[in-house]
Amino acid sequence: MTEEALKDLLYKIADDQLILGHRNSEWTGMGPLLEEDIAFSSMAQDKVGSSLAFYTLLHDLGEQEPDTVAFTRNAEQFHNCQFVELPIGEYNFSLIRHFLFDHAELIRFQMLAECPIEEVAQVAKKLKGEVKYHVMHANTWIKQLSNANEEAHTRMQESLNYALPYALGIFEPSQFENDFIEAGIYPGEKAIETKWKENISKILTEAGLTLPAWDSIEAVYGGRYGKHTEHLQPLLSEMTEVFNVDPTADW
């Protein structure tokens, strides 16, 4: 497998984590209840922290410093799926996104923990513990809230329906899909997607939410290769506003 392929994989993971962590941090100080404000902020920090871990791996492969990579690229240069760049919306959407994304992330990290590339396996092994808590958090919230009352149920179902096409975009195949599978890096996006569908439908059923037929949903692809919604560039401009006052300065 080529280094180019490995970078392709690491970039999409890192960019997903950074953009979703950034988005979720918008709730810090404005959450629906104090304790949840704190918990959600921790998970946003975990995401930004793990993006840093992957940018560091990329730096070791010859890419630029993590700060430079994260704070100076334009939208077309980002490899995150469109799902993570969508605005935070109401709490129901942020929760559903957290649930759908972190289930995929947990499977991804579990698979990468077995990766023959030692450095990648190490990072994945470490991070899967914190993502396990994220998934516990998400599962509990989805189950508690979705059957609490009609208002909550409706909100959760609507968010789920809206989120699913984007969520399937997480698994947009890489141009190196076969290389990964052949080299045993991880079993590939299709394999994550299959396991993911199994895991989330179990929880969603317990929560009393309805999962539409999978073949009725069209996945939103494009993010992995620079095609983004109108939301990403403004997010990046905001994120880099201070950094770009002087990118060479030590902040």
């Binding site: 950034h22 100080g29 902020s41 930004v48 994120m239």
Partner: peptide, 19 residues
């Protein structure tokens, strides 16, 4: 300033601080 903190170190710290 959470969404505008310059660089990883500041971004993480400010999130944690406000939290």
């Amino acid at each position: 300033w959470i969404t505008r903190a310059p660089g990883f170190k500041r971004k993480l710290a400010l999130m944690a601080k406000v939290q």
